[in-house]
């Protein structure tokens, strides 16, 4: 394989991406991440402290509680996306394949629309819909004469995280739909014709034809879900603010990072501890990505 490509051509392919990526992303990140191994003395000087910041994250009574809480919440957030968003997304993509292009385009576009909205709008409208004062309650009362008030789903510690996870699923379901659909329509047209001609059942076709062919894409969607969710920040930030209430029940690693690094209200930022949070996030995500790459590697060799 190496004989076919000249070194010059390889540099041409990889060069531009490497340049921009290294200069405007990697260098700034490394410059900041390395702060996680230091502490700030007197505004300017950085004092090397090894793993002290990580020790704080894991063991300090105040920090560790917040850190583990955020990690646990993030896990739940991810599981909701993985096991609700993705299966439904795959199902929708499958349904779309059987339709005419015009119909498929219409449905696809409709499902993608929430993904194109800014978080501000998504946050505002769902807070309104779910509000016991203005939202569903008023409809239930007007239409069904139900006098019971719906619980404040976004306001109760027990339901806030689940509710916001579902709002996020609503917003981003277009992504698995689009990716799986793109993969499905790349399948050889002859095979798809054969399924139609032989009148293969929906589920049989799914398990024996569609699934094996889009399995790599499903793996891709899964790893993207994992990476995006453990890096998630904007929706919680917009709806609940950096304090991610009620009582930190919606706190994710992303909001914890923001609060720790940049500070909040009267709390000043701690760039060293914040960098440590970011490093922890990086490592957590790295584990998942490594598993994915290993899995993909095995498939290539197969």
């Amino acid at each position: 394989m190496m004989k076919n490509v000249k070194k010059r051509e390889l540099i041409l392919f990889l060069g531009p991406a490497l340049f921009f990526y290294c200069v405007f992303f990697v260098y700034p990140m490394i410059a900041t991440i390395k702060l996680s191994f230091y502490e700030t003395i007197n505004n300017d000087t950085q004092n090397f402290v090894g793993l002290a910041n990580f020790n704080t994250l894991i063991n300090d009574p105040f920090f560790s509680e917040v850190f583990w809480n955020a990690l646990w919440n993030n896990l739940i957030f991810f599981l909701f996306h993985m096991f609700i968003q993705n299966p439904i997304g795959i199902l929708i993509a499958l349904l779309l394949v059987n339709l005419s292009f015009k119909a498929a385009t219409f449905y696809r576009t409709a499902v993608m629309l929430p993904t194109m909205l800014s978080f501000v709008i998504v946050g505002f409208i769902w807070q309104l819909i779910l509000s016991p004062t203005w939202g569903i309650t008023s409809i239930l009362y007007d239409v069904f004469s139900i006098k019971e008030n719906t619980p404040a789903l976004l306001g109760e510690e027990s339901t806030a995280l689940i509710t916001i996870s579902l709002v996020s699923v609503w917003q981003f379901i277009g992504i698995p739909v689009l990716l799986i659909y793109a993969a499905l329509i790349s399948i050889n047209k002859d095979i798809l014709e054969a399924i139609k001609l032989e009148k293969v059942g929906f589920f049989k076709a799914f398990f024996h034809v569609h699934l094996p062919m889009v399995w790599p894409t499903i793996a891709l969607v899964s790893i993207l879900t994992y990476v995006n969710n453990f890096n998630a920040f904007d929706l919680i930030y917009t709806v609940k603010g950096p304090l991610a209430g009620p009582n930190f029940s919606t706190d994710l690693l992303g909001t914890l990072f923001y609060r720790t690094f940049f500070g909040f209200q009267l709390q000043s930022g701690n760039i060293n501890l914040g960098a440590a949070v970011a490093t922890a996030m990086f490592l957590i995500i790295l584990i998942g990505v490594s598993i994915y790459l290993f899995f993909v590697q095995r498939r290539i060799l197969r």
């Binding site: 190496m2 390889l10 992303f25 700034p28 990140m29 990476v227 992303g254 996030m281 990086f282 590697q297």
Partner: peptide, 28 residues
């Protein structure tokens, strides 16, 4: 497409970009 030493590492290197909160490197 091509096999060469460090290919997997390079692939992983590029993916690092998705594993870190983007605001982290703002100051540099």
């Amino acid at each position: 497409e091509y096999k060469y030493r460090g290919r997997i590492l390079l692939s992983l290197f590029f993916i690092f970009g998705m594993m870190i909160p983007v605001r982290l490197g703002t100051i540099p």
